[in-house]
Amino acid sequence: MYRVLVVDDDEQMRVALRATLEHLGYQPTLSKDAKEALKLLKKHDYDLILSDLKMPKMDGVEFLKEVKDLKPHIPFVMITAFGDIKTAVETMKLGAFDFILKPFSQDALKKIIEMAISHTSIKQTIQNKPATTKQKEGFVFKSKAMENIITLAQKVAQTDATVLLIGESGTGKEVLARYIHSISNRSKGSFVAVNCAAIPQNLLESEMFGYEKGAFSGATKAHPGKFEQANGGTILLDEISEMPLELQAKLLRVIQEKTVDRIGSTSSIKVDVRIICTTNRNIEEEVKEGKFREDLYYRISVFPIRIPPLRERKDEIPHLIDFFIERFSAQFDKQIEGIEEEALKILNNYPWPGNIRELQNVIERAVVLCEGKYITKDDIFLHNLG
């Protein structure tokens, strides 16, 4: 069970977070201030730190600096209010994994914790365990095709060229984007992801470019957009082919002019941002059909990289299975040594429409169900099996 250190001077917030974390399957430890938390950190290790930004005695920023000196391997997530976004973004430059805005939902908290722990777990596996299967920042690969992709990523990371990552859902486009950022000269800057498919069209513009106070009903404060938050770092425009045409034109101007215009503003703001885009569609067909601007396509596809689906690199399936078995066995405190041949055959013959993400979910479920030392066919559940 993963251990989470919660640091907040608000008792009601501590109690609420404890209940939420326990419900999600984590083991929380509560601390009322940063100095007390540092004493705990000297005696114990934790899988994640969840800290408020504004606290007496020592605020979240100073606490983060102390943590990075004391135990830099522990992922740090900052809890912050809407008005402190600028400071929260700065904490990411100091080493925080991410920040979460109050008020937040249980699902939002669950997602950010899973991402932080997963990202750190993979990095530690790569650093600490030699393996015959090659690993790079979350990629476990053996095929020549993936080795070529990693080589391309390493080359383009040393430039500021706009990258377009093309591949089906679940192939690891965001993981590769984060890898490119992590080895670039912008690695100390923020990595900000925008899911163009998940944000409603009427909110996407304000999320990306921000808005001024009074720009529309409900805009009681000025709000910096994602491009401003990513200034000096990298912005990921995930599933960019879902972006409406009218917004594509505004994005083109941002790329060309390197400035953003907040909604309701009469002046432009300069931004220095590296752009990485992803799509799971045939974007050239989208251009032909008039669904995506041709001029924007040429701007974002300066350096295209196609990530092949799992069904095109099935020789990697056994190695990915071993990787996920080890990872989830540790997470659920189980002693699973591998997978039976019959179960492996089922997984090798499956087409994997959800790619690596689907395989990861299947193995996680199998590890939970497994009652012995080896995963059996009875532990495997696939969508197209009766």
Rank of each mutant, 00 (worst) to 15 (best):
L30Q: 03
L296S: 01
N195Y: 01
N349Q: 08
N280H: 05
E371A: 08
K314D: 03
Q360D: 02
Q158V: 00
L296Q: 11
I255C: 07
D10A: 06
R311Q: 06
I166N: 02
D333C: 15
E168G: 00
L252E: 01
E22R: 11
V287Q: 12
E168L: 01
F191G: 09
K377P: 07
K32C: 14
A116T: 01
S267G: 00
K42Q: 11
M58Y: 13
V302R: 07
L21W: 10
F63K: 02
I339V: 15
E371T: 10
L21I: 03
R299D: 08
P318D: 12
E364F: 00
N349C: 05
D238I: 07
A157E: 10
F323P: 07
S187C: 12
V367A: 02
E207K: 03
D378H: 10
D333T: 13
N282Q: 13
Y350M: 01
T120F: 08
F191C: 06
D33I: 15
Y297D: 05
P224A: 04
S206W: 06
L101C: 12
P318F: 08
K71D: 02
V67D: 06
Q256D: 14
E284L: 02
T91F: 08
K213W: 06
M78H: 09
L94R: 06
R357N: 01
T29G: 14
R186D: 12
K226H: 11
R274N: 03
S187R: 14
D378G: 06
A215S: 10
L203R: 04
T87K: 03
G95C: 15
L38I: 12
R274E: 10
I126N: 11
E284K: 09
K35S: 06
H73F: 04
Q27I: 14
I112H: 09
I283L: 00
S241F: 10
T266C: 11
M13A: 13
G172I: 01
I240R: 00
R18M: 10
A343S: 02
E246G: 01
N384C: 00
I166P: 09
R178E: 14
T259M: 08
E342N: 05
L94C: 05
K35R: 15
E285W: 01
E257G: 03
D69Q: 13
K110L: 02
L236G: 08
D238R: 08
G338Y: 06
K334R: 12
I150K: 08
L344I: 13
E286G: 06
H23V: 10
D84L: 09
K35Y: 14
D107C: 01
K377W: 10
A157G: 15
F191H: 02
E285G: 05
H181Q: 09
Y350Q: 01
F303V: 15
N348A: 02
L21V: 10
L41A: 14
D8P: 11
A34C: 15
A197E: 09
C370G: 04
K111F: 14
A16G: 09
D45K: 06
I269F: 07
Q201F: 00
K42H: 07
E294S: 04
R18P: 00
V89L: 09
T266Y: 14
T91H: 04
E147I: 06
G95H: 15
D45F: 10
L50E: 03
C277N: 11
P353V: 05
G60T: 05
E286L: 04
D33R: 15
I126K: 11
E239Y: 11
G338F: 00
E205N: 14
H73G: 08
T162A: 12
G225A: 07
F99L: 03
